[in-house]
Design a binder for these strands. Structure first.
Length: 506
DNA sequence: CGGTAAATAT
DNA sequence: CATATTTACC
C-alpha cells in the first residue's frame, strides 16, 4: 500500500501542535480544566484571563495561534463577546460554556464564532477543531487573517495541489482560493453539475454555516462535480481555412444508464465554433478510448478501429493513434523489458523519470481512483455501476483528497501545526479512499520505496499494463463481462464483432 | 494505414 | 522544465 506505518502514526497525531489561545475571563479554575483538556489533545495552549491582553496577543501575532477558544461566563459575557468580535477575523474562534442556553449559543454564532461548544469538553469535541483553522485559512483568505494561518493554507494548498487542483481544469486552479468561481459551464445546456459548492462567497454567512453544521467537516461529501469549463478557444480569426465545423466532440453516451456524468470531458459547446484542433482527453473520452482498446485487445488495438469503436465525432485517427502510442505503447515498452541489456537501462531510467516527474501534469489530472480502473472496466455498461472515473471527481466542497499521498516535495509547511496535514478522518470515509484501491503487489522483498514507486505508477497510469504481476483483465474476460451485461456486441456500423480476435479488413 | 519522432502547445 | 497533443514523415 501506499501507506507506511509511519504515515499512519502521523495521521493519528495530526492535530497535535495546534496552537490554541484560551481565554477565560472568569475564575481560573475552569480555565485550568479546559486547558488541561486541550493539552491532553496535544494542543499547545496559552491561557489568558484578560480579554484585552488576549486580543493584543492575537493582533500582534506574538504567538502564532491557530485558533481561539473563549469561555463564556454566564455572568460576564461581554468581555468574551468583545474578544470574539475583535478576534473572529483573525482567528477562528470557538466559544465554550456551561451555559447551554440557545440564546447564548446563537449569540456567539451570530457574533462570529465558528462554533459553540457546550461544556464539559470532550476529546470528541476538541478533536476536530482544526477544521475551523483550515476553513478559515482558506475561506477567509485575504484580509486580517492571522499570519499564523498562512502557513496552514500553504500546506493545505500544496497538498491539495496534488490532486485537487488539476481536477478543476487547469485554468481555474483556484479551488484553493476563496473564490472558487465555478462560473464555468457556459456550454451546453448540460448543466449536469448538480452542485457546485459555493461555500465561498458571502463570508458573512460563512461563520454561521459552520456554527450550525457544528463543524466544518472537510471530510468527505461524496464526489461532487467537477467544475469544468470548456475553453473557449481563442478561435481568433478562424474565418477562413479551417473548416472546423465538424469537430465537435459529441459525447454520445452509449451507456444509457444513469451514469452520473461528472465533469464532462469533451463537450460540445453549444453553438460554439468547433474547436478546430486539440482534443481534450478527458475522462469521458479516455474512457471510451480505453474501452475500445480493451475490446479490441491490445494486440489489435489499432487507431482506426479504436476510432470506430469510440464513435466520437470529430476525433481523428491521428488523435487516437497518438494517444495510443504515447499513452500506451510507449510505456508498455519501458515497463515490459525486452532485451536484457537494455533492460537495466530502461528500468532505471524509468524510475528516475518517475521520481522527477512527481505529481503533475497529466498524471495528476487523472489520478485514478482505483488501481486499474479502466482496464478492469467491469462496469462499462453496467446499469448500476460506473466505477472508473478516471480523473477522479474530487472537487468542490468536501472533496476528500487522497491526502495520504505524500507529495513529492514538502507540502507541509513546517510552520503549520502538526505533522502531516492529513485529516484524522475517522468516519466511514477514510477507509474507502485508502483501501481497496489496489491489490498489494507481490513485492515481498522489494524495498518499500520501490514498491511505492511502482504502485504510484500503476495508479497514475491506468493505461499501462500492470507491473509486478498485476494483470489487466484479458480481452476475453472483458467481453464476457460485457455480454453478461447484455452487451454482446457493439451495435451499428461495422463492428459488431464481439470477438476481438477477428480483425477485420477494411 | 500504422508508427514514430520532431514540433508545439501547455 | 516536463508533459500532452499535434504534425510531419517514413
Amino acid at each position: 500500500m501506499v501507506f507506511t506505518s509511519n504515515d499512519i502514526s502521523k495521521w493519528e497525531n495530526f492535530p497535535k501542535g495546534l496552537r490554541v489561545l484560551l481565554l477565560d475571563c472568569g475564575d481560573g479554575i475552569s480555565a485550568a480544566e479546559t486547558r488541561s483538556k486541550l493539552e491532553s489533545m496535544d494542543y499547545i495552549v496559552t491561557t489568558f484571563t484578560d480579554g484585552t491582553e488576549a486580543l493584543s496577543a492575537v493582533i500582534k501575532s506574538l504567538e502564532s495561534f491557530h485558533i481561539a477558544i473563549v469561555e463564556v461566563n454566564t455572568n460576564d459575557e461581554n468581555e468574551s463577546f468583545k474578544f470574539l468580535e475583535a478576534a473572529k477575523d483573525h482567528l477562528p474562534t470557538i466559544m465554550i460554556s456551561n451555559d447551554h442556553c440557545i440564546t447564548t449559543t446563537m449569540k456567539c454564532i451570530a457574533l462570529g464564532a465558528v462554533e459553540f461548544l457546550q461544556k464539559p469538553l470532550s476529546p470528541e469535541k476538541l478533536k476536530n477543531i482544526w477544521q475551523h483553522v483550515v476553513h478559515k485559512a482558506f475561506n477567509d483568505g485575504g484580509t486580517d487573517v492571522s499570519e499564523s494561518l498562512k502557513p496552514v493554507k500553504e500546506s493545505v494548498v500544496s497538498m491539495l495541489h496534488l490532486d485537487t487542483d488539476m481536477t478543476i481544469d487547469e485554468k481555474d486552479s483556484a479551488p484553493l482560493t476563496p473564490q472558487l468561481k465555478q462560473v464555468s459551464r457556459l456550454l451546453d445546456g448540460g448543466d449536469r453539475q448538480e452542485n457546485i459548492n459555493s461555500s465561498t462567497e458571502k463570508e458573512n454567512m460563512e461563520d454561521q454555516d459552520i456554527g450550525e453544521s457544528k463543524s466544518v467537516d472537510t471530510t468527505n461529501h461524496d464526489d461532487n462535480v467537477i467544475v469544468k469549463e470548456e475553453k473557449l478557444d481563442g478561435e481568433t480569426g478562424d474565418t477562413k481555412s479551417e473548416k472546423t465545423d465538424s469537430v465537435k466532440f459529441q459525447k454520445k453516451e452509449d451507456e444509457t444508464t444513469k451514469h452520473n456524468n461528472k465533469s464532462t470531458g469533451i463537450k460540445n459547446l453549444s453553438g460554439n465554433k468547433p474547436s478546430r484542433k486539440k482534443v481534450d482527453w478527458t475522462q469521458e473520452l479516455h474512457k471510451k478510448f480505453v474501452q475500445a482498446v480493451d475490446q479490441l485487445g491490445v494486440d489489435q488495438a489499432i487507431p482506426s478501429r479504436i476510432l470506430e469503436l469510440m464513435k466520437v465525432d470529430g476525433l481523428t485517427r491521428h488523435n487516437v493513434a497518438s494517444h495510443l502510442q504515447q499513452k500506451f505503447r510507449m510505456h508498455r515498452r519501458n515497463i515490459l523489458p525486452k532485451e536484457d541489456h537494455n533492460h537495466r537501462y530502461i528500468q532505471s531510467r524509468e524510475n528516475h523519470r518517475q521520481i522527477q516527474r512527481q505529481y503533475n501534469g497529466f498524471q495528476q489530472q487523472h489520478r485514478p481512483v482505483m488501481a486499474y480502473p479502466v482496464w478492469g472496466l467491469p462496469g462499462v455498461h453496467p446499469p448500476g455501476a460506473v466505477p472508473p472515473l478516471w480523473p477522479p471527481p474530487l472537487q468542490s466542497s468536501g472533496q476528500l483528497p487522497p491526502w495520504h499521498w505524500r507529495p513529492p516535495y514538502p507540502t507541509v509547511n513546517v510552520n503549520a501545526w502538526g505533522c502531516p496535514v492529513v485529516p484524522p478522518v475517522t468516519g466511514p470515509f477514510s477507509s474507502p479512499t485508502v483501501t481497496g484501491t489496489f491489490s498489494t503487489p507481490p513485492a515481498t522483498q522489494l524495498d518499500e520505496e520501490m514498491v511505492d514507486q511502482v504502485v504510484k505508477e500503476a495508479i497514475s497510469k491506468p493505461w499501462l499494463p500492470l507491473p509486478l504481476g498485476l494483470k489487466p483483465p484479458s480481452a476475453e474476460s472483458v467481453l464476457a463481462e460485457l455480454s453478461r451485461q447484455g452487451i454482446s456486441a457493439v451495435p451499428s456500423s461495422s463492428s459488431s464483432c464481439p470477438i476481438n480476435g477477428s480483425r477485420r479488413l477494411r
